[in-house]
């Protein structure tokens, strides 16, 4: 376990959008962030993938300067996290709907804009941009509490970006929204990416990370256990192997024993096997038949981030 700090002088801090050195944060006996080091390149979108309790939100809050590390250092464009320069450069979209429910959408944006020091024409332009980006122009005068869940999520994002930050932290921005709203949010984030904004995006939905992120950091128990592009993560974990997903019918003890014997993994009545060559499927089919099990359904797929996470931790991503 890495938990010692490595003091660095402010002048030595990198001017990268984000540089984290051996960050440790404990809450009582729980180590939420356990010696994380991370660098982010300009214009990059990094996905932080991990189950609930992996330490994603604590890491994000530490970058936002809202958590005091027990050791280690976080620098945003060369400035210490929480410093005025860091705050100005950073936009934070928290997981909670951190809005004023009794203010309208426009008033919310105006309030948060002012908190970031915007005023006059700049503030007006920022509000107009925020409303347009979040597709809330026609609901600008509605109270935040009267907006739909998806609209509030979008307003929540616009409030975090009202001052046009250079680095954006998005902490599970799609929690609790319907598929249509989620797509709208994806489009918003993709629009930011085309502007060259640097983004950290936390989620426990692998498909979001796969769609939006250049690199993906997989977190578990407060540590980054893998960090790379999606393809490299899969390649490193599985090489050229594929996965067979089979649904079996038969006595559960019999099914469990057979799947374990073949080195597979059973979830409910669905078994997963990793194979080197498609030809191995035939052997699986024969084996099931000779064990007296009925094969209801069978498919072949390339491993995904879920598979990578399972491979690395032995647990499901959404456990």
């Amino acid at each position: 376990m890495i938990n010692q700090s490595t003091p660095t002088s402010p002048t030595a801090l990198s001017s990268l959008p984000l540089k984290i050195d051996l960050l440790v944060k404990r809450f009582g006996n729980v180590t939420a962030v356990d010696g994380i080091s991370l660098e982010l390149r300009d214009g990059e979108c990094l996905g932080l993938l991990g189950p609930n309790g992996a330490g994603k939100s604590t890491l994000i809050r530490a970058i936002a300067g809202r958590v005091t590390p027990d050791s280690g250092r976080v620098a945003v464009f060369g400035s210490e996290a929480g410093s005025p320069a860091s705050r100005a450069a950073l936009g934070w979209v928290p997981q909670d709907l951190a809005l004023y429910p009794r203010l309208t959408a426009k008033e919310n944006l105006s309030s948060f804009g002012r908190y970031y020091g915007l005023k006059g024409k700049k503030l007006e332009q920022a509000i107009a941009w925020g409303l347009e980006w979040a597709a809330l122009e026609d609901r600008a005068g509605d109270l935040a509490r009267n907006l739909s869940g998806g609209m509030r999520r979008r307003l929540n994002m616009a409030a975090g970006l009202i001052h046009q930050p250079r680095l954006v932290l998005m902490d599970e921005p799609t929690v609790g929204v319907d598929p249509q709203s989620r797509n709208r949010i994806f489009e918003m984030i993709e629009a930011l990416r085309t502007q060259g904004m640097t983004i950290i995006y936390t989620t426990h939905y692998m498909e979001e990370a796969e769609r939006l992120c250049d690199r993906i950091a997989i977190m578990d128990h407060g540590r980054i256990i893998a960090l790379n592009t999606r393809e490299a993560l899969v390649q490193n974990s599985f090489g050229s192997r594929s996965q067979v997903v089979a649904r079996l019918d038969g006595p559960s003890e019999k099914v469990s024993a057979w799947v374990a014997e073949r080195g597979g993994r059973l979830t409910d009545s669905t078994a997963e096997f990793t194979i080197e060559h498609p030809a191995e499927i035939t052997a699986l089919l024969d084996g099931a038949a000779s064990a007296g099990l009925e094969l209801v359904d069978l498919s072949l797929r390339r491993p995904n981030l879920e598979s990578v996470f399972l491979h690395l931790t032995g647990r499901e991503l959404r456990d």
Binding site: R66, A88, P94
Partner: peptide, 16 residues
Amino acid sequence: DEAESGALDRVLSSRV
């Protein structure tokens, strides 16, 4: 209310 909704956290991450 602001602390509960997370707005306080957000405000304190700004220039305030």
